[in-house]
Amino acid sequence: KTRLHWMVILLISLILIFSTVSCSNKNEQTTPNEELKTGTEEPNQQTETFQDQGIYTGQIDNNSVEIRTKNEIMALQLTDEVRQVIETLVENDEVTFEYEKNKVGQLILTKLEKINSYKTSQRKLPKEKDIEIFVEGTKELRKAYLNESTLGYSIYVQPQFTFSGEEPGKDILFWNNDGNYYIRIEKLPDDVNIEDMRKNAALELQTIGKVYERNVEEIFDPFFRTAKFFLTSSTSQLTQNIMLIEIDGTLFKFKFNFPNGEAAEGVTPSLWAMLKTIDVNQ
Rank of each mutant, 00 (worst) to 15 (best):
A264H: 06
N176Y: 06
Q53F: 11
R184I: 04
G261R: 12
F230M: 00
F224H: 02
G137E: 03
F134A: 11
R225Q: 15
F252K: 03
G266H: 13
N260A: 10
N92T: 01
E72Q: 15
T79D: 06
N33K: 15
K210V: 07
K143E: 05
K1E: 02
G58I: 12
I194H: 05
N177S: 14
T150E: 03
G39W: 06
I155P: 02
T40E: 03
K26Y: 11
Q45S: 11
Y181A: 08
L151Q: 10
D191Q: 12
A264V: 06
G39E: 02
L107F: 15
K111C: 04
I155C: 04
A273W: 00
I131V: 05
N193S: 10
F254Q: 02
L109I: 05
L4N: 09
K228P: 00
D191H: 14
T239I: 06
L125W: 01
S234A: 04
I86Q: 05
M74A: 12
A75S: 15
K255M: 06
C23L: 13
Q77A: 13
S22D: 11
K119W: 04
V85T: 15
R184P: 00
I12F: 14
R225T: 04
E100P: 00
P222F: 08
N63A: 13
K187G: 02
M197I: 05
E113R: 13
S117H: 13
P43V: 08
V85E: 12
I245C: 07
R184Q: 08
K129A: 05
K101A: 10
Q77L: 14
L271N: 01
Q237F: 09
F224I: 01
T232A: 01
K103M: 07
S24H: 09
Q51V: 08
T239E: 07
T235G: 06
P168L: 12
T47V: 11
I183A: 08
L203C: 03
E28A: 11
Y181I: 04
R214A: 04
F163G: 02
T138M: 04
E167Q: 13
C23M: 14
R198A: 06
W175A: 10
D196T: 09
T268F: 08
E94C: 14
E35S: 11
L146F: 03
E246D: 07
S13A: 15
T150G: 05
K103H: 09
N193Y: 05
D178M: 11
I185W: 01
Y56C: 11
M74G: 08
